[in-house]
Design a protein around this nucleic acid. Structure first.
Lengths: 340, 340
DNA sequence: TTGTAAGCGTTATCAC
DNA sequence: GTGATAACGCTTACAA
């Protein structure tokens, strides 16, 4: 049995409330007694029971981190950084992987009602199901959205400007002198995907080019889609002079097809990929990527929720972060095989 | 404000204790009243306050998941599956990423003392620091180890037989008729790595072959080490006829070097890699891998801890799981370029 | 400055 | 079968 506040109080010969005050840096204790009490507590390695604390103060210092999947390397990066800054602020993270299942998501939302967490960060996924969010919003715990759109209500959010990312990619490819750029995209009905392609097309327009719709290949987020798209383009007889790819998995398939066809990257086809660091650095040649400030997004999200929990008003309800371009071999005009 | 047990009791016109009994399926309530109470509770969407429950019952239904890093795709797989089976059993997971920092690890161990979690699963990392583990063991919460060795004491653990994995790889390569197999390994002083290489060598011995120590390249777990090892072997003038690689990152570098050298995989060099699914399926050709039953390991670990929490005695203190081989293009003798 | 006592929302032990 | 009531370990008025 770990010892309790009462034990410390007895050992120190004071009342529990005094110990509580001393240990919580609250006024109303003589410096002398405070030091003594802290001494004793430390000596006996006293740890306050968070449950009791939570019950009394009505806060648990726990944050639910809801996400729809774990596999995505991007998510890993986000999780890591949320944990870090939450931890630094004295908060614990409860991992709530909804596995894309509405039922699980719903169950996890109950945590908010059960007062077991002070708030929640919701990462990605589809549009917020209004029932759920409305319920939560009207009731209790604060929520922050990361990379997830809320239609109905204004919820504090951190977003990444996918449109801007598409634009950067387009501009970079145009800068290489390309004119007929193909785009290998994820699912057509995905909002984020359409943002990317919009930005991409905007870049072309701004350079007096037009995007050829037949060079845009939407499809599932699988390697095979990247591979097949290249074949399709060949069959169409409309060879592009470069590629914008919306995900590194697609790029894996695409580069494979290109190489299989005897072509060279970036010699024949420069590529810019919207993607994560891990996969895109394994692909050969290493991909020029549109890189998202995931760590920053994660930190901002935690900061937002923590501010809310502290009752502070947050300056920006919605922050939009800008991706950047990380130029590597797949789009270097002067590419040489001199990698180490 | 969410309503409490007291509210329900008032609405039902009974005592709090009766409501508690009714809602917890405890004896001592007439069927009639129970139904009525459950009705009311459901109608008002009553959620018991887990904090109060935890305080009263001295259990929180929370499990700490301690790991030293998050980046590893293997870990993601483990986390996902631990969350799943814990969730199914009604437990929440607190994510404790120690970031490899002893201080953070220590802090997280305090959770156990603060009664905020019922138990912990510790995944991977170095040898258990005895101070910490001893403290915890002697005191309170149950702990289960996953892929982590405990030297001092017998702690319930789930391990994966790396030695066996090495053996499988060796045997498979020998079956392809190879005789001079090189091994590209991670850090030499790593226990898991030496297990792998031991198994690998054992397979050679069992087939009347001997491992050539000059064909074993230990080094950091980086792509560059894979790349350089191939160059070194060429310089040494000792060309192997195949490769055993201990990590997919190393394989990424190795395959790049091989292809750069104008050789063919598996035509010139069959490869078997000890590794995760993600990276090894992106590498071209897709790698034959020694695949670990991570999901199974995760489930066993959660089951172990949950059994312990329920006070059950667990049948096997230590379970050792066996990896399997997943043959793909990189070691197929009849490899053809007919991938879709 | 310090101590007393009333919560926080449950569960569990008693009587009735 | 049911209802008071005392825990659980802490915080926080309110007294002293």
């Amino acid at each position: 049995m770990p010892l309790t506040l009462k034990d410390i109080a007895r050992k120190a010969g004071v009342a529990e409330s005094t110990v509580s005050r001393a240990l919580n840096d609250k006024p109303g204790v003589s410096e002398e007694k405070r030091k003594e009490i802290i001494q004793i507590a430390r000596k006996h390695n006293y740890q306050p029971n968070q449950l009791a604390q939570g019950l009394a103060k009505q806060e648990t210092h726990m944050i639910a981190l809801l996400l729809s999947q774990l596999e995505n390397p991007d998510y890993t990066e986000i999780i890591k950084n949320i944990e870090r800054s939450a931890n630094r602020a004295g908060y614990q993270i409860i991992l709530c992987n909804t596995d894309g299942k509405p039922q699980k998501e719903k169950n996890y939302f109950e945590l908010l009602k059960q007062n077991i967490v002070d708030g929640a960060i919701i990462v990605g996924g589809r549009l917020t199901e209004k029932n759920i969010l409305n319920i939560v919003l009207n009731e209790e715990a604060p929520i922050v959205l990361l990379n997830r759109l809320s239609e109905e209500i204004t919820i504090p959010s951190v977003l990444i400007d996918k449109n801007r990312g598409g634009y950067l990619a387009g501009q970079h490819l145009v800068d290489q002198g390309l004119q007929e750029i193909a785009a290998i995209m994820g699912p057509e009905d995905n909002y984020q995907e359409s943002e990317k392609i919009n930005g991409f097309e905007k870049a072309l327009y701004d350079n007096d080019l037009t995007a050829n719709p037949r060079l845009i290949k939407s499809g599932p987020l699988e390697r095979g889609h990247g591979y097949n798209s290249f074949l399709e383009l060949m069959e169409q007889g409309e060879m592009p002079d470069g590629f914008f790819v919306s995900h590194s998995l697609l790029a894996a398939g695409l580069t494979e097809a290109i190489k299989m066809g005897g072509y060279h990257i970036p010699g024949d086809f420069p590529i810019v990929c919207y993607g994560d660091n891990l996969i895109s650095s394994i692909i050969n040649p290493s991909l020029t990527i549109i890189s998202e400030p995931l760590a920053e997004a994660a930190h901002q999200a935690s900061n937002k929720i923590i501010s809310l929990l502290k009752g502070e008003t947050i300056s920006q309800q919605i922050s939009v972060l800008k991706p950047s371009i990380n130029v590597r071999d797949s789009s270097l005009p002067q590419f040489k095989n001199n990698k180490k």
